[in-house]
Computed example of a mutant assay.
Amino acid sequence: MGLLSSVREERTERKAEKKIRKGEEKAIKYRAKAQAKASTAAERKLRKKDLRTEQKFHKRAQKQERKTIKADAKAQQKVAAAEAKTVAEQSKAAAEAAFFTTTKMKRYLAVGRLAAPIVVPIAYRAAVAARAQLTEFQAQRAGVPASVLTQFGGPSAALRARIATSRDSAQKVAATESTAEGRAFVDAMTGRLDNLLVAADAADTMPPAQRKSAQRAIDNELTAIDNDLLARLNVHPA
């Protein structure tokens, strides 16, 4: 019995040792596999991080390059503008130096004194004619007679002239109206024209940009009033 028991114990120990070795081998394989997997993941993560870093520096370098190119172009433009300004100033100074010499000035003054009795009247008549042509042109643009336009001054002179002619048209409409409704229409038109005249006076005191906007609004209102008056007279412009 002792011998059989000893054999069984040895067999049991061998089986136990075999199981232990298999367990250790399995653990070693699992650990190696896990380490390999972790190493691969870490490498991928590291490569991904390196790639992001590389892209970041590349974008930063491109941005800096664009900024440098833009700054260089701007500096070159400034240099070119400064050179052009210097050349223009030098040319102007040279022209003035060549034109306004002492001898030439004396000669010009002498000729001017001799020609003044003839030139001044001619220049005056030319100025008057030019002024008349300008007034006629402005009157045509405003759609009013030149004689009416010359009665008004200031930046809104043309608008005041238009208001005056529209008021004359309203009076003509009043002469043809005998009904209460017709008189009320004329009164309404006259009131609107009075308001526009006040607006034109106010526009003259405004800054240029604001004045243009106000004058444009007054002009549109005058056009509407003129159309209403013409319609009242049974005149319908095409």
Rank of each mutant, 00 (worst) to 15 (best):
M1W: 09
G2F: 06
S6N: 07
V7W: 12
V7Q: 07
E9I: 10
E10T: 09
K15F: 11
E17Y: 03
K18C: 08
K22C: 04
E24P: 00
E24C: 00
E25H: 05
A32H: 10
A41W: 03
E43W: 03
R44A: 12
L46C: 07
D50W: 09
D50M: 13
Q55N: 15
K56F: 09
F57A: 13
K59C: 01
R60W: 01
T68C: 05
Q77T: 10
K78T: 12
V79W: 07
A81Y: 07
A81N: 07
K85R: 12
T86W: 08
F100V: 00
F100R: 04
F100P: 03
F100I: 02
T101R: 09
K104I: 01
M105E: 13
Y108A: 09
A110Q: 09
G112C: 01
G112N: 15
G112M: 06
A115Y: 00
A115P: 02
V119D: 01
R125G: 03
R125F: 08
A129G: 03
R131Y: 05
Q133I: 11
L134E: 10
L134S: 15
F137W: 07
A146T: 11
T150C: 02
T150H: 02
T150Y: 00
S156Y: 00
S156C: 08
R162H: 04
T165P: 00
R167T: 14
R167N: 03
D168Q: 09
A174V: 11
A174L: 14
A175C: 04
T176A: 12
T176Q: 06
T179R: 02
T179G: 12
A180Q: 14
A180W: 03
E181S: 13
E181M: 05
V186A: 05
D187T: 15
A188Q: 11
T190A: 12
T190E: 14
G191E: 13
D194R: 11
D194P: 00
N195F: 03
V198W: 00
D201M: 06
T205C: 01
P207T: 11
P207S: 10
P208G: 01
P208W: 00
P208S: 04
Q210N: 11
S213Y: 02
A214V: 10
Q215D: 11
E221L: 05
T223D: 08
A224H: 05
D226K: 14
D228S: 14
L229P: 06
N234M: 07
N234E: 13
V235P: 07
H236M: 10
A238L: 14
